[in-house]
Every structure is written in C-alpha cells, then in structure tokens.
Amino acid sequence: MRAALGAVALVGLAVLVGVVYEQAGRYRAARDFPPPGQMVDVGGRRIQLDCRGTGSPTVVFESGQGPDGSLSWSAVQPKVAAHTRACAYSRAGLMWSDPSSAPSSARQVAQDLHDALARAGERGPFVMVGQSIGGPYVVSFTHYFGAEVAGLVLVDPSHPDQVARVAGYMTESRSLLSRVVMGLGWSGLVRLAAPRLLPQAPNQTAHDVQAVRAFAPTSFRTELAEGDATDRTLAEAGAFRDLGDRPLAVLTAMAPYTAGELRGMKITPGQGKEVQALWKQMHDDITHWSTRGTHRLLPNAGHDIQFDDPGAVVDAVLSVVERVRAAGAAASAAVPKNSP
C-alpha cells in the first residue's frame, strides 16, 4: 500500500511539475515572441493580422494545416510586400490568435478572415494565396466574398476529391499516439518535445521556428481539430469549383517523397510515384476551375513549397498581381472620359 501511495505521489508530483513548466513556457512565449502586426478584435476574441507594404491588389496569405500560422509565409511575404500590400494572419487558435468556440469549418475560417480584414481597414481587391488545406479555405472565401477577390494562387493545394482518389493507396488518418501527444499541451510534454516535432525548415529563421515551438502546445490543439474537420472542409469547398475568369496560378510539388514521408503514408516508392501522378491530375483539374488558370510543376520542392522554393511562390503571386492590375487598367481605359 505504501508503495502504491508513493507511486501515486510521484505521478502527482510529475504532473504538477509539468503543469508549472508549461505555464512558465506560455508566459515566456508571450514575453519573448510578441505578435507581428496587430491583434484584431472579431467579436470578443482576437485574430493576429500582419499587413505590410502598399499598393493594390492586396495579397492575403492563408497557411496550410500546421502550427505556423502567419509565420508559414515568412520567406515569401516580405518579398511580395516590396511590390504591393501583403497580409498574413493566424487562424483562430493558432500562434497568437484566440481560439474559437465554433466548430472548425471553411465558412468559419472565411468569416474570421473577412472580419479581421474589414475591422483592420483592409479593403479589396484581394489576391488570395492558400497552401495545402489553405487552398480550399481561400476557395471558400471566394465563394462567400467573391466580389472582393480578384485572383488566386494555390500552393500545392488540397483537392476536394483527394481522399477518395488516394483511398486505394493509403488512409488519411492521424495515429492515436499523435492525437494523445497533441491533447497533452497542458502537461508540458508537447513543449518538451517541440524541437523534435518541429524541425527548422529551409529558409525559416531560427527566431521563427523558436516562436512556432513556443506556441505549439496550444496551436497543436487547433491543428488536431482542423484535421478532424478535413472531410467537412473539403466537401464544403468542393461545392464551389467555378472561379470564373479570375487569374489563377496553381503550384504543384513534385519532389520525390522522402523515405520518412513514404513510411508515414505506408506506401512504397513505386506507389509514391503513382500518388504524385494523381496529385498532378487533381491540380490540373483545379487549374481549369478558372478560364485563366496556369499550372506549374516544381520538381525540387516538397509540399511546403513556400519554404522549399519561396521564389516560385513569389513569382506566381506577383504574376497574378500584375494580371489583376492589367485587367483593372484595361477596364478603366474602356470607360469613356466624358461619361457621367
């Protein structure tokens, strides 16, 4: 009995130490890594929004599924902001942004972003840029607020039919272990493991990766909720596949899957090539959602193109910006000078 009580006491002490360690870590995160840009009130909670540069159209960056939030675009945004207004933000519950009590959905993400932009005084026309699941998010934003969207750039975007298309090769699911780890943000374990869970990406600064790790215990909880809502998000975005004549650029990562990625997907190298062929086909389909779509394959970039080949993303964004500007100039020139 004494041994059992001793074990319980040790466990209780370990939990207490972990909780104290986590709370101290959250204090240091807020102190050492203040939010870039501003915190915008969207009705009782705040969204972090970082807008830089001047000019029109305004480029709006939407991150993929992960804990990085606005920092997902740190290698791209400054170069775009040298040419036009550029805004990156963190979805509710990621990095500095307050969590939302509403279930994760494409419509909720679009509404939050629209509210944050409007309350910060940012006005369209917008060029929406989305990576991975951020692709369906910005397509949904276009669905709900289309009058403000002049063009899109989709960076290795998720496709509404991707789950069904790759079902013969793998099942998209999160392991029980990863779900348990992500759910233990309060215990200090995630913070302790963050350096291993979140390695530094190419073209990512040490400061940024440290900031992402500092907020990982709370960001991971949101990432898990967004992952659980993936099917609903894809279905919602897939109901809208007509982008009209808006300029659209689609970028596809075609670097061969690494050994670690193949193990994670539980497929062979040969199957990996087949999955990539399907991925290209799906992106070909997305390109035709607009009558002015272009598609570029990047043979040396992995899924996070914004880190692996940020120059390609910058070029795609600026090409859409120039096409939007040219269309605007042509429309202005077509209006008679003496018209009432």
Rank of each mutant, 00 (worst) to 15 (best):
L224E: 13
L224R: 08
L224V: 00
A225S: 06
A225N: 03
E226F: 06
G227A: 09
G227S: 12
G227E: 15
D228A: 09
D228R: 05
A229K: 05
A229I: 07
A229S: 11
A229Q: 08
A229D: 11
T230P: 01
T230K: 03
D231H: 02
R232H: 10
R232L: 11
T233Q: 12
T233M: 15
T233E: 07
E236T: 14
E236P: 14
E236M: 14
A237C: 03
A237Y: 01
A237G: 02
G238W: 07
G238R: 04
A239N: 00
A239I: 04
A239V: 06
F240P: 11
F240T: 12
D242Y: 07
D242R: 12
D242I: 10
D242A: 15
L243I: 00
L243F: 00
L243G: 04
L243V: 00
L243T: 01
G244R: 00
G244T: 08
D245L: 04
D245T: 15
D245R: 14
R246V: 12
R246I: 14
P247L: 01
L248E: 01
L248C: 03
A249V: 10
V250N: 00
L251V: 00
A253I: 14
A253P: 12
M254A: 10
M254G: 09
M254W: 00
A255D: 05
A255T: 11
A255Y: 13
P256W: 05
Y257F: 14
Y257V: 09
Y257A: 11
T258F: 10
A259R: 05
A259S: 14
A259L: 07
G260A: 11
L262Y: 13
G264A: 05
G264P: 11
G264L: 00
G264H: 11
M265P: 06
M265R: 07
M265Q: 12
K266W: 10
K266Y: 08
K266S: 15
K266H: 13
I267E: 14
I267F: 13
T268D: 00
P269W: 13
P269V: 13
G270N: 09
G270T: 09
Q271W: 04
G272D: 14
K273L: 02
K273E: 04
V275A: 10
V275K: 05
V275P: 03
Q276T: 09
Q276M: 13
Q276P: 05
A277C: 07
A277K: 06
A277R: 07
A277N: 02
A277I: 02
L278Q: 12
W279L: 03
W279V: 10
K280G: 02
K280R: 15
K280Y: 09
K280H: 09
Q281K: 12
Q281I: 06
M282E: 06
M282L: 14
H283W: 08
H283Q: 15
D284L: 08
D284Y: 00
D285R: 15
D285M: 03
D285E: 15
D285N: 12
D285Q: 14
H288R: 12
H288D: 13
H288V: 08
W289C: 04
T291G: 15
T291Q: 07
R292Y: 08
R292G: 03
R292T: 14
